[in-house]
Simulated assay, not measured.
Amino acid sequence: MKPMVKLTDVSDEDAPEFVRDCFEAWYRSLYPDRQGLVVSDVRDITSGWETRLFYFVLNYSYNGSSHNDRLVARIFSGKSARYEHEILSRLWGAGYPVPRVYEADDGGVLGQPFLTMEFIEGRGLEREFLSGSQEDLEGVLDVMMGLFVRLHDIDISQIFPDRTGVSTLEYIDRVLSRYKEVTADCGIAWMEPLIEWLEERKGSVTPMLPTVLHGDFHPMNIMLRVDGSPVVLDWGASKVGDRRSDLSWLMLLAGTFLKPSVRDAILAAYEAASGTEMDDIQFFEALSILRRLTDVAVSMEAGAETRGMRPGAVEMMREAAGHIRNVYDLLVELTGLRLPEYEEFLNSL
């Protein structure tokens, strides 16, 4: 049964108290053998466009021992938490460095789906990307590419036991089909020239074996624990597909949020770590640009929730207008295409 009051109905100021009260009642019913259970130190630690994060401490006694578990609730907008919960559980079982996950709920507690996981004490890798030091960049790329290649080498059946691998062309067709549907439904037909550009060239893309994809691999989704060991976060977009899709997304984000030269450094580091040349990477960069521009345009036109993002994401997009313009400029550079309606949209930001 869903609560009468939802988290989305509560002000940001009152949200921590609301989460505390809901979680205390839920945990007490879930674990009646935990004595003196209290939820404390609840605070909103959200930083991204998609999900909302709350840190909290779960205090209780069990079998004569006191526990003060430091946890994070990852709260989703418009999609189930169980998909990511299952992926994280399987990655943990496969020995890949992810946070340990615990419970998942599809809306009965807060009115929104969420999962709970361990709190990672440490820091993200974005500092090295932003420092401007070549030594820092090379060091962080060594860590990231090691994690990236390790992920792409995992046996697909360990993470997605019910799925078979798809060919490169099948994967591209699925992506393009999804964006054709999204752009048509949301009335942004002016994205069609880019879709047509990709359709015309997809048949000549060199095929590669399918892999497990992260879907949003970038420095802010990788943390270093206090002991220096890395942990990869945010697996809601994980799926099976062509690894160049993962790689080009990282290249796009880093190159447009930071500086263009980082794109080439990332590509070179991945090829060195994997021992494989990434042919036709520019095609996948254009595919990633389609994803980014569509997500932004649809969120602005129809609301962020339609793309599975949290309320407030649109304002964050406006604050990242420079990044969005850089994405469009890269589109022009790679394809020669211009989208007049999108240029008008950019000028309105």
Rank of each mutant, 00 (worst) to 15 (best):
V212R: 07
S167T: 15
R178T: 13
P207T: 04
V240I: 13
G215R: 07
R150N: 13
R244T: 04
P219V: 00
I222F: 08
T256L: 07
E200T: 15
I172A: 02
L252M: 08
L224M: 11
G215A: 11
Y179N: 12
D264I: 07
W235H: 14
E192M: 12
E170F: 10
Q158M: 11
T206M: 06
L247M: 05
S157A: 11
M208F: 06
D264Y: 03
M220I: 02
I172T: 05
G236S: 11
S204A: 15
K180D: 13
T211A: 13
A254G: 03
P260D: 09
R243M: 11
R174C: 05
M208I: 08
N221W: 09
I159F: 00
A237Q: 12
L198P: 13
G215Q: 07
S238E: 13
E170W: 15
D173I: 04
N221K: 10
F217R: 05
T206C: 08
L250S: 12
E181W: 13
M220D: 01
V231F: 02
M191R: 06
T256F: 12
G215L: 11
M208W: 04
M251D: 01
L258E: 11
V262T: 08
L198E: 09
F217W: 06
R244M: 09
S248C: 10
P260H: 04
D162P: 00
R244Q: 09
E200R: 15
T211L: 03
S248M: 13
A184P: 08
L252D: 00
M191I: 11
M223I: 00
G228W: 11
P219L: 01
W190A: 06
A189D: 15
L233R: 13
L253Q: 02
W190L: 01
W197E: 10
I188T: 15
I195N: 09
Y179D: 14
V262S: 05
I222A: 07
L247I: 12
G187M: 09
Y179P: 09
F148W: 02
S261W: 01
L169Q: 12
I156S: 01
L176A: 08
V205N: 05
L253S: 01
K180R: 15
L194I: 04
V226F: 10
L176K: 13
W249E: 06
R243H: 01
R163S: 06
Y179K: 12
R263V: 05
E181Y: 13
T168Y: 10
S177G: 15
E200H: 12
T164H: 01
M251W: 04
K180Q: 15
G255K: 11
S261K: 04
R244Y: 11
W235C: 09
S248T: 10
R244I: 03
Q158S: 05
R163N: 03
R163G: 00
M251A: 07
K259V: 14
G228L: 05
R244V: 01
M208R: 13
R263G: 03
P207V: 05
D216A: 12
L247H: 06
G187W: 06
R163M: 02
V175H: 14
G241E: 02
D246T: 01
L198S: 12
A237V: 10
D242T: 08
L252G: 01
V182K: 14
R263A: 06
L176N: 12
D162S: 01
R243F: 07
W190S: 10
V166K: 02
D216F: 07
E192D: 14
R150H: 10
L233F: 14
P219H: 00
K202I: 10
I159R: 00
A184M: 14
G165P: 00
S177R: 14
